[in-house]
Simulated scan of single mutants.
Amino acid sequence: MKNLRPRQAVPELIVKTTNGMDWNLRDNQPENFTMLIFYRGIHCPVCKSYLEELNTMVGDFKDKGVNIICVSSNTKDLAEKTVEEWDVDNLTIGHSFDVEDGRKWDLYVSEGIKDSEPAEFVEPALFLIRPDSTLYSASIQSMPFARPQFVDLIKSISFVNKEDYPARGEA
């Protein structure tokens, strides 16, 4: 059963970040959206490519009134290693996200199948959240593949902002 519904409040989200701050969704005040990306962690090469692509487009999203945070269940050390080894210097990277909290976000949780993977971790998702902390859009994956493309998302956000297009899927 889905917990999240468009136009309804999303769960609380407070995460520690690699820059030493606590990031709180309720305190985040974007012009139009917060784009919340959950990623699998440093063990995932698809996540690396995805976040590195996003890193090059942060300015495009800011121009559309979108703030960005990327969150994983990786430990602080692994998240810091991510920042050191990946090209993600324009992104806010959250860490130590509890997989049980992931279930409140309707995220899929996987068990590690290789030594390089954590015992448990959340699978990818992308959420657009309005400034009032209500859900606008959700894309939730059970695998690292088939994620929303950022170029398409920027075009969609332009349309949404111009046309004041409402969230859908709430019925």
Rank of each mutant, 00 (worst) to 15 (best):
P6L: 03
R7H: 10
Q8P: 02
L13T: 10
I14E: 07
D22L: 15
D27M: 12
D27Y: 12
P30Q: 08
P30S: 06
P30D: 04
E31F: 02
E31Q: 07
T34R: 00
I37L: 07
I37D: 03
I37M: 13
I37T: 13
Y39V: 02
Y39M: 04
I42P: 01
I42H: 13
H43R: 05
C44P: 01
C44M: 14
P45C: 13
V46P: 01
V46E: 13
K48Y: 09
S49G: 15
S49K: 08
E52H: 14
V58D: 10
G59A: 15
D60F: 09
D60P: 09
K62P: 03
D63K: 15
D63G: 04
K64E: 13
G65Y: 01
G65H: 11
V66F: 03
I68S: 00
I68L: 11
I69Y: 01
V71K: 01
V71D: 04
S73D: 06
S73M: 05
K76H: 05
L78N: 09
A79Y: 03
A79S: 07
K81M: 14
T82R: 01
E84F: 06
E84A: 05
V88D: 02
D89V: 02
L91E: 01
T92H: 04
T92A: 00
I93W: 03
I93E: 00
G94C: 06
S96G: 00
S96W: 01
D98K: 08
V99S: 02
E100I: 08
D101G: 09
D101C: 14
D101K: 10
R103M: 12
R103Y: 05
D106N: 13
L107V: 05
L107I: 06
V109A: 10
S110N: 08
E111V: 12
E111T: 09
G112T: 06
G112K: 02
S116M: 12
E117N: 11
P118Y: 07
P118W: 00
F121Q: 00
F121V: 08
V122D: 08
E123Q: 15
E123H: 01
P124W: 03
L126M: 10
F127G: 01
L128Y: 06
P131T: 08
D132E: 11
T134Q: 00
L135S: 02
Y136D: 11
Y136G: 05
S139E: 06
I140H: 03
I140W: 05
Q141L: 04
M143E: 12
P144G: 02
P144M: 00
F145N: 12
F145A: 12
R147Y: 10
P148F: 03
F150M: 11
V151A: 06
V151I: 13
D152V: 15
L153A: 00
L153S: 02
I154Y: 11
I154A: 13
I154K: 00
S156L: 15
S158G: 14
F159H: 08
F159T: 14
N161Q: 10
K162I: 08
K162W: 11
Y165T: 05
Y165F: 15
P166E: 14
P166I: 11
P166H: 03
G169I: 07
G169A: 04
G169C: 09
A171N: 15
A171C: 05
A171V: 14
